[in-house]
């Protein structure tokens, strides 16, 4: 195992980086998409039920099936992987963003307006900061999920550590099969834990002082 890693450490590091890069990019994009949709829902509360239902349906569709559905449109490679990861990444964030933004007390919004804040300022300085801890919790769930989905997307030649798992599968019986599968699986777990820790730190820094628990 150590020889295996030592021999290939550059390649493994590179693929691990690619994995993280794909997931982080997708989750960041997903965060923007989710917050935008959630703001729309806050404006038009009737959309709330529909959004919840669509995200429940979306989460039910297996990742591998979505890969199959996307392939004809987006082909083999990282585009498919990115869209697939991004699709799932939006859902948990969206759910929490809707709850978070709607959960801001009307009294606070009222007083913000009373202080003379415009609509944009109310969103940027009151709504978003107050909803942020809940949104961040959604981002953490989303990130964990995305790491696994990115591994599946490797079947259609998406970038990252998933390819090690599939190489291990293809070489079963060979001497390196276990090494490949272990590096792929444990690599993803390790990176997921590191990213989660980083998000906790992000929370420390970005959650406004007044509402820290």
């Amino acid at each position: 195992m150590w020889d295996f890693i030592a021999e290939r450490h550059r390649q493994i590091l590179y693929d691990g980086f690619q994995h993280v890069y794909l997931v982080v990019l997708a989750v960041v994009a997903a965060t923007f998409i989710a917050i935008l949709i959630a703001m729309l829902v806050t404006k038009v509360p009737r959309l709330g039920g529909v959004t919840n239902m669509l995200s429940a349906i979306g989460l039910t569709i297996p990742g591998f099936a979505l890969v199959g559905l996307l392939m004809p449109a987006t082909g083999i490679g990282s585009t498919t992987a990115f869209i697939c990861v991004c699709f799932y990444a939006v859902l948990p964030i969206l759910r929490n963003a809707v709850v978070g933004l709607q959960g801001v007390e009307p009294v606070l919004l009222e007083s913000a307006r009373g202080m003379g804040m415009g609509e944009a300022a109310v969103i940027a300085r009151v709504r978003l900061p107050l909803a942020w801890p809940v949104i961040l919790a959604g981002i953490r769930v989303s990130l964990q999920m995305s790491m696994g989905i990115a591994a599946i997307a490797a079947y259609v030649l998406g970038p990252g550590l998933g390819s090690y798992i599939f190489t291990g599968l293809a070489q079963i019986g060979g001497k390196n099969a276990l090494n490949y599968a272990l590096v792929g699986t444990l690599g993803v777990v390790l990176l997921a834990l590191i990213l989660d820790l980083l998000l906790v730190l992000v929370g420390r820094v970005t959650i406004p002082k007044g509402i820290r628990v």
Partner: peptide
């Protein structure tokens, strides 16, 4: 924490 393990990796490891 175990949930972070990709399903496909777990399945392949079990098969090995």
């Amino acid at each position: 924490a175990g949930q972070a393990a990709p399903a496909i990796g777990l399945i392949v490891l079990l098969a090995i």
